[in-house]
Design a protein around this nucleic acid. Structure first.
Length: 259
DNA sequence: CGAACGACCTGTTCGC
DNA sequence: TGCGAACAGGTCGTTC
């Protein structure tokens, strides 16, 4: 589910409501998430995003690391504290409760674990270095779309935004990453920066069931050019958008203006 | 090292 | 209407 803009949205909203707050209790409802910790009385220092990871830093060098994978949702609730279906943990504060709701149970939770090796482009919101892209893509034969989604290279881009970025850059997603010219990588970098920034401003993309921390729909789904639009008309050239699997993932593109 | 593919889960949508 | 197949925002492990 959530890619960089969705996770960024949740982190900003959590930071606003949780920073400085004291944990009352943590309850793990799904044993798949592992054992909980006694965090009672600890204050939240910061809530930050690393790629698609959510890092909650607490007093005493304690951290909670959370990854929502495909269907993880986080909801902040202050009234009507009924446990919704598929709730996997609850983190209770004096002023409200943070719930993880995750139907597919792919989300993961860990405590105090070491940070992963940062990707060369660890925060696409701060801009891209085209040189790094070219260097890392050299000799890679996998499709450029899979390359954009490789978290070891760029942290945060997933299926929706990879499709949108390549359409904006007019690049065929099936081309090998190593085949793009410098000028094409510049177009990709520019498109990626612009699209991700705008998606953050829109609080993400609500395809199917994504909602923000307060259960509200996002806005970027109203700006999608290709994702989810198979059979519809390309707004750029009037050709029909197609869907074709790449790397096992549904990929949407315009066969006419993406070359 | 990189690439391809199945596995992990459950719910919803699609096609006959 | 009903039923099985296909599909879904993401990674990870295995095999070649």
């Amino acid at each position: 589910m959530p890619e960089l803009p969705e996770v960024e949205t949740l982190c900003r909203q959590m930071s606003a409501v949780m920073a400085g707050a004291q944990v009352r209790r943590l309850d793990i409802l799904d044993a798949r998430l592992g054992r909980g910790k006694n965090l009672r009385g600890m204050r939240v220092l910061t809530v930050a995003r690393e790629g698609k990871w959510i890092i909650i830093r607490l007093e005493g060098e304690r951290t909670i690391r959370l990854h929502l994978r495909m269907t993880g949702h986080l909801l902040w609730r202050e009234s009507d504290l009924v446990i919704l279906p598929h709730t996997r943990f609850t983190l209770t504060f004096d002023r409200g409760r943070l719930d993880l709701v995750d139907p597919r149970r792919f989300a993961t939770l860990s405590f105090d674990s070491p940070l992963a090796e940062p990707a060369p482009i660890k925060n696409p919101l701060e801009g891209f270095d085209t040189g790094i892209l070219i260097e890392r893509a050299a000799k890679r034969t996998a499709p450029v779309k899979s390359f954009l989604m490789d978290q070891k290279v760029i942290a945060g881009i997933g299926n929706i935004y990879a499709c949108e970025i390549l359409h904006a850059a007019a690049i065929d997603p099936r081309r090998s990453a190593g085949s793009l010219s410098r000028a094409e990588w510049r177009k990709v970098a520019t498109a990626a920066g612009r699209i991700l920034q705008k998606a953050v401003a829109c609080r993400g993309t609500s395809v199917s069931d994504w909602r923000d921390l307060y259960g509200r729909m996002a806005e970027y789904q109203n700006h999608l050019s290709v994702y989810g639009r198979a059979g519809e008309t390309c707004l750029q050239c009037r050709e029909t958008i197609v869907r074709e699997p790449i790397g096992g993932r549904g990929t949407f593109f315009c066969p006419s203006c993406q070359r």
